[in-house]
Design a protein around this nucleic acid. Structure first.
Lengths: 124, 124, 124, 124
DNA sequence: GTGGTCTAGACCACT
DNA sequence: GTGGTCTAGACCACG
């Protein structure tokens, strides 16, 4: 479920955060599901427990999971997450479009890429 | 012309590199133009000379700039740059689109954003 | 293992880069080996940490080494390195031969030198 | 006669020195020939007079030219030059051969390159 | 512990 | 004047 890439510029804990969020959006994790324990996930991913710990605490700061002392870490699905993520991605979209136009990539070319990706996603 | 953002996770020298590339693409710098001297730009941007020096040397490794010992640093415009940049931005575009679709942002919504940006850019 | 020559026109960081590559080719370093830490090597070689750091970052850009934040720097042996090195040395070989012939050094004399070196290397 | 390469790592004055020596070895310059004046060569090569001046003074240090105040700079051909150059190139040859063997380039491959270059040179 | 970045200041080579 | 390298020392992010 998690795949870490050490050559990626994103730090490991960030990759865990991102992949957890993505797992929620994809429906792999549902509201109130229990996450694996820090030690367990660390063992599975062959990383330091402090790395997983940091990932969980970032997720908790974002309100995406909740840690209950002595019980574990649980998904706290809040529709707001989707709203936040949408806002972030729309900003990113604007940036990328600006760069595309700067590089003389036409609107039509961009739409072609969009349609290609759409097809790929639909297939899955 | 250059605007540094210290809260940005990208290091200063990288921001100088990126903004220089962008300046070339926008036509502010042209082939064979002399760049400001290391000391001069450092003074302007209120950073250390070695930071600017590092940025220039990165640009040189990319073949975007040529430094002639004792003379200065000069723009070396090569149409290949545009090719490289296009390839990079198209990859980024695919990633962003994938994320959008994952978040149930519709193709139409994406195109609306695109059209908004297009208008903004055209106005300038 | 490393020997720095301050009278050499090559900068220190470059000597570290070259000797590291050479160490890999000679088999002293193997794939996935951990390099000495920046601070450690700096202490051993009596140079500044930033000098070693620069050498490592050059090696990383060349894809010869991978640095994992917080863990260290590791050899990333890629057979391509040998290809690159071979191409470079063959170019150098052509240049030197041209100079030799220009100086009226005969083919036979050159081959004698080659045989002398071959023997030396074989002995080791 | 002179061709300067600004992208070459060798400084300009060094390129002038090397090409002058090469011109002597090729017989373009002969003993007691007068070299172009510093100003003249600087003008021709579009470089600073101090650059040419430095080149001439290096040549003088090596005993390859002689400057006579008020008269000009003259070639001072001494057969020793060839001896020195030969010694230098033979050292270089040894280094390059060592590297070749380290990279598993066989003696036969090296000889093939040598023969290729020999043919090229003979044709000229 | 690891590497990455930045500063201030110095020195050198080249033009 | 130009850029390149190095040092000493500081701070930060990551594991």
């Amino acid at each position: 479920m998690y795949t870490l890439d050490y050559s990626n510029k994103d730090p490991i804990y960030q990759q865990i955060v991102d992949q957890t969020k993505s797992a929620i959006l994809k429906g792999y994790y549902k509201d109130k599901d229990q996450m694996p324990s820090v030690r367990e996930l660390a063992k599975t991913l062959l990383v330091n427990t402090s790395t997983v710990s940091r990932a969980y605490s970032e997720l908790e700061k974002m309100g995406i999971v909740q840690t209950i002392a002595g019980k574990g870490t649980f998904i706290l699905f809040d529709p707001k997450i989707i709203k936040w993520e949408k806002e972030k991605i729309l900003e990113k979209l604007e940036e990328v479009f600006k760069e595309c136009l700067l590089l003389d990539i036409s609107k039509d070319d961009i739409i072609k890429v969009l349609e290609k990706i759409e097809e790929e996603v639909v297939k899955k």
